[in-house]
Design a protein around this nucleic acid. Structure first.
Length: 871
RNA sequence: GCAAGAGUGGCGGAGUGGUCAAACGCGGCGGACUCAAGAUCCGUUUCCUUAGUGGAUACGCAGGUUCGAGCCCUGCCUCUUGCACCA
């Protein structure tokens, strides 16, 4: 049967018999989850296939191992692309999304993945996002959802907010000649910082790669420091610093150009210039900010130094983040690189306050900021202090004066969830002129998206009168709805829980079911989610735990980050670069099994790789070989050697799959398969098939069926390892036979004898085995091979000095002896293979013990390596 | 710029302190089969040397630790990913 027919046949059967449908039962549960995709209109590319195959292999493995495996799939279907399509191609985001999802499902089904399709969900479905809104209400009630002004990218032509993605080189994506501006809007936030402390504790995440926790830790960026109050225009402004020891060196302050209160401290004379400066800033992306040349402008205001009462100028600067600390930093040019650069540029005075021991540093000597530790100078009462100690002392002084306090600051900001977009979850809040912001009642959910909207002119929701105009649920007066929708990361922050009970319309999910399946045992996705998604995900879990909805602290116990599949040009796959590889194309040409096997055999699942069609051919060849072998194999009795090999491989593959080293596991499988003979036992064939089925389930089902089985291999159980069948001697024997064979071929080639008459094989002298044994013993005691040289020379092995000198270099180089077995066993083995060699080379073979031979050659024999004479 | 990773034969990639001239695959070369091609099978694929041997040189660059380093440390170069309104 054709591969394609086989695949369709089994996919239909699996679906009909609901083979992958799961319910709570008595078996131990295991939850495998791949990060759900955004259903792009382009369909699945091979990177998706990679992601899902990694999960599926593991899910199948765990299923066979007897676990009750939950392996669901869903769609993160809200998002910007659907809306962009609406603007550009004038299509309805809903239809666009529905089509994309249908396409995704069709393609995913063709991959033969063990998804329980009865649990499928999509986030743009009101049955799902209703519960986003429900969570929002809970956050609102607890004070974790709040509103504040914040800077956004603004296109004056579109009259709308732009995503960072829609800003190209400071210009709007739709208007290449229009500079993006920064505007301040009231925005909704989730207070992620409330959980910052707990989020920076990774102790409950044992199965997470350390580089992820490192990244997250840096992202959360806990730092302890001091909050210093500087008085500007009779108002105290708090400035966060980790270096209060340099406080006496402050010669200016810098407020972020994106600070919402910047204009409040700009004097009239400077207003125009500052506004101009702010207008020049054309991105809120921190990546862009860091790349900019440091620039600033004087605001006209002065701050009063809390200790010296000196007046220092306040600048607005493009390099200060509005959301970190208080958005205002103190400038100590002598002891901070950025401040130094800035002060040089604007001729701001400098003052050295820390100097290295035994030297007095002067401003004139400075070529760059002095950022090392030292002793305080020019700091009045603090002179002579070591700067590390001064941190505390100066902070204490500030505390006394009521001018400062210790503080813990996080780089992590509260999560801005407001999006001025249509295709997202509407924020369930009504703004009433009397009552302020009023949340919807739970019974009024879901708050649906209106359809009478216009795209391309500002925020689409604002164009829907029926949506905007409503009445206040509290007082009944006319009021307006909030027209923001929520960030799509909101949806992906709890979807794992909904899979446990996806149809529930009474509550967000059944607690018992959610707690039964969760936390996720294995969560699989790309590294690109290391910070944002995975932090929001953890944040939500903690919040829902505090609401009493779940009884665990972390959403996923083990995290696996697969590598990224790049195009064959080495770039990230993207439509615009034209380097995407479509899954359907590959399946049509090679079949799903080949694709599955290929993506996990080409490299380790964790490493990036560039897509290359060439490798598919060899994978297809292998798969075909397996297929045709099973179609023609004779069922017979197993021999001990195959048994040993099969159980050795089973043991290795088991461990390798557990560690997700699929590529190596496949190599072991291939090696095993190559050693199969035309007659094999049914039992051994079945063990192979079960391992093979993880990667190529369709063909495995078919072959399983061909062997006379009426069950599904997908629902079978993992083969039982019989360690007693593993005999390492067979391993040696295999190598020994192969090496001897190759040696004969080598010699034949060198002597150029085309037709061999006779082969003489000399098995090494018995004493050489004893010698080897002795050396082996010594190596056990002395790890360092160099140490055994004198030992040997002192012992009775000295008589064999010549032989020892021959093998010593090899031992030193490799740290061990060449492999060998006992004299008797080797002799037996070589006798055993005599016939095979005679057959292959069509000649007479003579086995000779070197002791019995006068032939010079015999002396060259070594344990595990017979000397050869061919004639 | 900041942060986290990565750099191994012609190529994809194994390999985290000694059994490495480098698993496995691709490609190249030679051979068998074939009228021929394909498929399949066998051999070969750093250099020198050799009746299957022995030696030299290799793991981004430069140093260091160690009896011993692809693997550990330091610096540099290059690439990848992320940087909060892409998901």
């Amino acid at each position: 049967m054709e591969t394609k027919e086989i695949e369709t046949k089994w996919q239909e059967k699996w679906e009909k018999d609901e083979v992958f449908k799961v319910e709570k039962n008595d078996k131990p549960k295991y939850y495998v989850l791949e990060m759900f995709p955004y259903p792009s209109s382009a369909g699945l590319h091979v990177g998706h296939a990679f992601n899902y195959t990694i999960g599926d292999v593991y899910a199948r493995y765990k299923k066979l191992k007897g676990f009750n495996v939950l392996h669901p799939m869903g769609y993160d279907s809200f998002g910007l692309p659907a809306e962009n399509a609406a603007i550009k191609a004038n299509v309805n985001p809903k239809d666009y999304t529905t089509n994309s999802i249908a396409n995704f499902i069709r393609q995913q089904k063709r991959l033969g993945i063990t998804y329980d399709w009865s649990r499928v969900l999509s986030t743009s479905d009101e049955k799902f996002f209703k519960w986003d809104q429900w969570i929002f209400i809970q956050m609102f009630k607890k004070g974790l959802a709040y509103k504040k002004k914040s800077a956004v990218n603004w296109c004056p032509k579109c009259n709308t907010v732009l995503a960072n993605e829609q800003v190209h080189n400071g210009k709007c994506w739709r208007h290449e000649d229009t500079d993006v501006e920064i505007k301040h809007l009231e925005q909704w936030y989730f207070k992620t910082t409330q959980y910052a402390e707990e989020l920076s504790d990774f102790s409950k995440l044992e199965g997470w790669p350390s580089f992820i926790t490192k990244l997250q830790n840096n992202w959360i960026g806990k730092s302890t420091g001091t909050l210093v109050k500087f008085n500007i225009n009779n108002e105290d402004w708090e400035v966060f610093t980790t270096r209060p020891d340099t406080l006496m060196g402050v010669t200016f302050l810098v407020i972020s150009a994106q600070h919402s209160r910047l204009l409040e401290l700009t004097t009239k004379e400077n207003l125009e210039n500052v506004k101009k400066f702010v207008k020049k800033q054309n991105s809120v992306s921190s990546e862009d900010i860091d790349k900019l040349e440091k620039e600033g402008i004087f605001t006209g205001s002065y701050a009063i130094h809390p200790l010296t009462n000196e007046k220092v100028p306040v600048y607005a600067g493009n390099f200060v983040l509005a959301d970190y600390g208080s958005g205002v930093v103190m400038g100590v040019p002598t002891h901070d690189k950025r401040d130094f650069e800035f002060a040089k540029k604007y001729n701001i005075p400098m003052k050295v306050v820390i100097t290295p021991k035994n030297k007095i540093l002067k401003v004139e000597d400075l070529e760059d900021a002095f950022i090392e530790d030292g002793i305080l100078i020019n700091s009045n009462e603090f002179d002579g202090l070591e700067n590390r100690k001064a941190i505390k002392i100066i902070t204490n002084k500030l505390k006394e004066l009521g001018k400062g306090k210790d503080t813990v600051n996080y780089r992590l900001r509260d999560w801005l969830i407001s999006r001025q977009r249509y295709w997202g979850t509407p924020i369930p809040v009504i703004t009433c002129p009397k009552c302020g912001d009023v949340c919807l009642e739970e019974k009024d959910l879901p708050l649906r998206l209106p359809t009478d909207v216009e795209f391309g002119k500002g925020n689409p929701l604002e164009t829907s009168k029926s949506f905007v105009n409503t009445i206040c649920p509290k007082c009944g007066a006319p009021a307006k709805r909030v027209t923001d929708t929520m960030d799509t990361f909101v949806n992906s922050s709890w979807y794992n829980l909904r899979y446990a009970d996806p149809q529930n319309d009474k509550e967000i999910f059944n607690k018992e079911l959610a707690n039964y399946w969760n936390p996720i045992d294995l969560y699989i996705g790309g590294k690109e989610h290391a910070c944002m998604h995975l932090i929001y995900f953890r944040f939500y879990t903690k919040f829902l735990r505090d609401l009493g909805l779940v009884n665990f602290d972390e959403p996923a116990l083990k995290l696996f980050n697969q590598g990224m599949v790049h195009g064959n040009d080495g770039n990230k796959m993207s439509k615009s670069l034209g380097n995407t590889v479509d899954v359907t194309e590959i399946i049509d040409k090679f079949g799903a099994d080949v694709l599955r096997l290929y993506v996990v055999s080409v490299a380790g699942p964790e490493s990036n790789f560039n897509w290359d069609d060439k490798g598919l051919d060899s994978t297809a060849r292998f798969v075909n070989k397996v297929k045709s072998y099973f179609e023609s194999v004779e069922i017979g009795k197993s021999n001990e050697r195959t048994d040993s090999r099969i159980h050795t491989t089973l043991k290795q593959v088991d461990e390798l799959i557990e560690q997700m080293k699929y590529n190596i596991a496949i190599i072991k499988l291939r090696e095993l398969f190559e050693s199969f003979e035309t007659k094999e036992s049914k039992e051994n064939l079945e063990i192979f098939l079960k391992m093979f089925s993880l990667f190529c389930p369709h063909i495995a089902e078919e072959m399983w069926n061909n062997l006379g089985n009426k069950t599904y291999i997908s629902k079978e159980s993992w083969p039982i390892l019989d360690e007693s069948k593993i005999n390492p001697d067979f391993d040696f024997a295999d190598k020994y036979i192969e090496n001897t064979r190759l040696d004969i071929l080598q010699v034949q080639k060198l002597v150029k004898i085309e037709k061999i008459n006779k082969i003489e094989l000399f098995v090494a002298q018995k004493w050489k085995y004893d010698l080897y044994d002795k050396i082996k013993e010594l190596l056990l005691i002395h790890k360092n091979p160099n140490e055994i040289i004198p030992k040997i020379m002192q012992s009775d092995l000295k008589v064999h000095g010549q032989e020892v000198m021959k093998i010593l270099p090899k031992i030193i180089k490799t740290g061990s002896l060449p492999e060998y077995i006992s004299f008797e066993k080797e002799f037996e083995l070589i006798e055993e293979i005599k016939e095979n060699i005679e057959k292959e080379f069509d000649c007479k073979v003579e086995i000779i013990k070197s002791d019995d031979s006068k032939e010079q050659k015999a002396k060259q024999s070594m344990p595990g390596k017979p000397a050869i004479i061919i004639s």
